[in-house]
Design a protein around this nucleic acid. Structure first.
Length: 287
DNA sequence: AAGAGGCCCTGATAGC
DNA sequence: TGCTATCAGGGCCTCT
């Protein structure tokens, strides 16, 4: 599911709903995510207040009142669900958590607050949690990632030097989180179509003009997607169950054999596997 | 050292 | 209907 825009949407709704709240209880139903959830996970987090919710790249970062950080990565199929506690009297004073849209399986982690809870669901379990002990360690961890497309340091000089003498194709470079972080398989195809560049083209062979386009459209596409609430292919939703709309704006992704949308372009969108990931591009206007 | 490929895992869908 | 094969939005690890 989640590339930078989708993670940003999740982050925004988490911020709105659980900032300043105290974690009352954590229930881990399955510890076997991408990385095993440690046995002291619950005790480290219970009774702590969520002081800040932020995001870098595809990571959501919770800062807690004991100065530790909880990182959450959604992998391919991770989703977060907000469930509000309803007090409904059914003869007795029973209170329960209403959950109309909650999946029945794969609800691996439940984090309870006073009058709500969030649930981490992830069928493929490629997502993970990670506790970071302090600010320095957080800095070191995030520093292993490249800049986000929005960052000033993601500029012509940087790309030019990074690509020098490299033979890797531009599509794989955009997926390389050490070069630029937050772009995934959908947006890589979209950005290259806007830029008019073939995904197979070697990074080292890009002209200055092309590099400038990549930089410009990486920012533009991601920002536009965030404004649309992200892309809801399959089942991406924000934590309250609301879908995004950017999938309606896709120019190439999932449009195999269809006509290119670019004005005066007569091309047909192709699908090819590049390093085992499906890649979409126009056979005419991307060179 | 850079780059390609395999692998972790479940579910939806297509094809027989 | 019920099998099998293929493909999914990510990223880490290994091999050359």
């Amino acid at each position: 599911m989640p590339e930078l825009p989708e993670v940003e949407i999740v982050k925004q709704s988490l911020e709105k709903n659980i900032l300043s709240k105290r974690i009352k209880k954590i229930i881990v139903n399955n510890r076997n995510l991408r990385f095993k959830i440690p046995t002291n996970f619950e005790e480290r987090l219970e009774n702590k207040v969520i002081v800040k919710v932020s995001r870098f790249s595809k990571y959501i970062i919770f800062e807690l009142s004991n100065q530790i950080y909880l990182l959450m990565h959604l992998g391919m199929t991770g989703t977060v669900h907000l469930i509000k506690k309803n007090k409904i009297k059914i003869n007795t004073n029973v209170s329960f958590y209403s959950s109309p849209n909650l999946p029945k399986k794969h609800n691996h982690v439940e984090i309870f607050f006073l009058s709500s809870k969030i649930i981490y669901n992830d069928p493929r379990r490629f997502g993970f949690f990670r506790i970071i002990e302090n600010k320095d360690e957080l800095f070191l961890f995030l520093n292993k990632l490249g800049p986000e497309p929005f960052d000033k340091s993601f500029n012509l000089k940087y790309l030019h030097e990074y690509f020098r003498d490299k033979t890797k194709n531009i599509k794989n470079f955009l997926l390389d989180q050490k070069l630029v972080s937050g772009i995934g398989n959908i947006y890589a195809s979209e950005i290259l179509h806007y830029s008019g560049i073939k995904p197979q083209k070697k990074g080292g062979n890009l002209k200055k003009k092309e590099l400038i386009k990549v930089i410009f459209f990486a920012k533009k596409v991601l920002k536009k997607s965030i404004k649309s609430g992200g892309s809801s292919i399959k089942d991406f939703k924000n934590i309250s169950g609301k879908k995004g709309f950017f999938q309606n704006e896709f120019k190439v992704y999932g449009r195999e054999n269809l006509k290119c949308y670019k004005k005066s372009c007569t091309g047909i969108i192709q699908k090819k596997f590049i390093s085992n990931r499906s890649t979409f591009f126009c056979n005419k206007c991307q060179k």
